[in-house]
């Protein structure tokens, strides 16, 4: 048991290191969210009343943290598709590491790499933009948003096991940008027309960010938010499992 757990821990660590060296992760998971956060909150905001600007800096911080977490999460799938293509997944299947543990290890590694994305944007908010929250709010933000990223990790993994590396890359980036825009991570959904806004509030990225927005407002997440996210978790989890089974049959 200790041996198997040790192998799992080593596998997670191996994959985390590989992800941190990935330019795709550095760009979509870390660089872009921080850059966009600073651009959106520091340029062209001069005419705003100070109270509105402070609120926007908090809202955008959480939106961009969610965007970065989303990028890191779906990026896990891009890595899987690439590893499938390069034969690494097949090679792993010839080692004593059990296939189920490889999948689980990958999901854990994906979740771990979500953390730096979250933390970087939150740090930019606190340090550069002077965002101030209560002491309990910071860890609550990190914890909730970390958990909330799981459906996206599973969605990316589902694509990775099912599709080619190229298709997965395009689809994951497309999904990332699409979900970020419709979910109001870049611009507030308040700016959307009413019909689009009601759609937006059922999209996973919007509910994901809502976990953070409610925390920053000092309240617990709404029940509807949790229900919608659990629904997406179930859908994406099933998708990942089905994709993995299919790839195991044809690999």
């Amino acid at each position: 048991m200790t041996g198997a757990t040790g192998t799992m821990r080593r596998y997670v660590w191996l994959e985390v290191r590989r992800t941190l060296r990935d330019p795709g992760f550095v760009i979509f998971g870390a660089g872009m969210p921080v850059l966009m956060y600073l651009l959106f909150t520091r340029i062209g905001q001069g005419g705003q009343p100070p109270g509105d600007l402070a609120a926007w800096r908090v809202q955008s911080m959480i939106g961009m943290a969610a965007y970065g977490a989303l990028g890191a999460a779906v990026g896990t799938g891009t890595g899987i598709a690439e590893d499938k293509q390069m034969g690494w997944l097949r090679q792993l299947r010839t080692t004593p590491v059990r296939p189920g543990r490889v999948v689980l290890g990958r999901a854990v590694a994906g979740s771990v790499t979500v953390l730096p994305s979250l933390l970087l944007v939150l740090a930019a908010g606190a340090v550069v933009n002077g965002v101030r929250l209560d002491a309990w709010q910071w860890p609550a933000l990190v914890g909730l948003m970390w958990l909330g990223a799981l459906p996206f990790t599973l969605f990316g993994m589902g694509n990775g096991y099912r599709l080619s590396a190229q298709t997965t890359g395009v689809l994951n980036v497309g999904a990332l940008v699409g979900l970020a825009v419709i979910g109001g991570l870049w611009f507030p959904v308040d700016l959307f027309p009413g019909w689009l806004r009601s759609i937006a509030e059922f999209t996973p990225a919007n509910r994901f960010a809502a976990l953070g927005w409610s925390t920053a407002a000092g309240s617990a997440p709404a029940a509807a938010t949790v229900v919608v996210l659990l629904g997406w978790l179930a859908v994406c989890g099933a998708y990942a499992v089905l994709s993995y089974r299919r790839s195991a049959r044809t690999a």
């Binding site: 290191r17 590989r18 990935d22 390069m86 097949r90």
Partner: peptide, 20 residues
């Protein structure tokens, strides 16, 4: 046998594992 660690394999067209 594979899980028990009795087998090692070198697969055809095994390409470079990236970033390791």
């Amino acid at each position: 046998a594979v899980t028990a660690g009795r087998v090692g394999a070198m697969l055809q067209d095994g390409r470079a594992v990236r970033r390791v």
